[in-house]
Amino acid sequence: MSGTREGGWYPLMLSADLEPGTVAGSTVLGRDLAVRRDREGQAHVWDDRCPHRGMRLSLGFVREGALACLYHGWRFGADGRCVHIPAHPDLSPPGTIRAAPLRVAECHGLVWASVEEDGPLPEVDAVAWVPVRSLRIEAPWQDVARAVGVPDGHRAAVLDRDVEGRVLAALLPVREGACMLHLLAAASAGVERLHDLADWGQDVRARAEERAGQVFLAGVVA
């Protein structure tokens, strides 16, 4: 993925889709991540693997400001260190028991994580962006980027579409042949415009998947 101007920063999800006190999963280039927001609103991104038994932390839940693993309830604080082991409530867990945190940033209405080498965050007009939606697309991210008009070498861009109002598109490569497309609109957009953009996203998805030979049609089998 080198060659992109955004260095190692990847747009995981819309900020609006990560509510305080919740944890979600995300996958970047086949690497599974747990994304959570604490009660104070700060986002954290860790590898999606409990250091205890390898359980996916994204299946867990937030308790007392810490992320609790669903398997044995081990809890991990903001820096990834284990703070509580329910089976040994009096034990102060050693600092070596630690989930692996990634660098995280929030801007332009998106949660970003630094997955590879550091680099600058993508430069986007610092206007207020309102979330439209995210779509999973079973097609290569580069193909979707080209289709919506994101310049080569970028994962996010303000689109130059011949419609009124600006659109921010950001692409997350999930794995080979699958990506997430995040869409946001300039804050001046009305509800009708947001619906139009959401429909447009579905259209982009359908076309990209048709090119990739992927068809997901409900109702065709009993």
């Binding site: 439209v132 939606r133 509800v191 959401a198 997901f216 409900a218 065709v220 089998v221």
Partner: peptide
């Protein structure tokens, strides 16, 4: 084909709720 139809059905729900949220 069954998996594709199942994913297609979940997407119909996802798309509807994405629109609902905008209002």
């Amino acid at each position: 084909a069954r998996r594709r139809a199942a994913v297609g059905a979940l997407r119909i729900m996802e798309d509807h709720l994405a629109h609902r949220r905008l209002e």
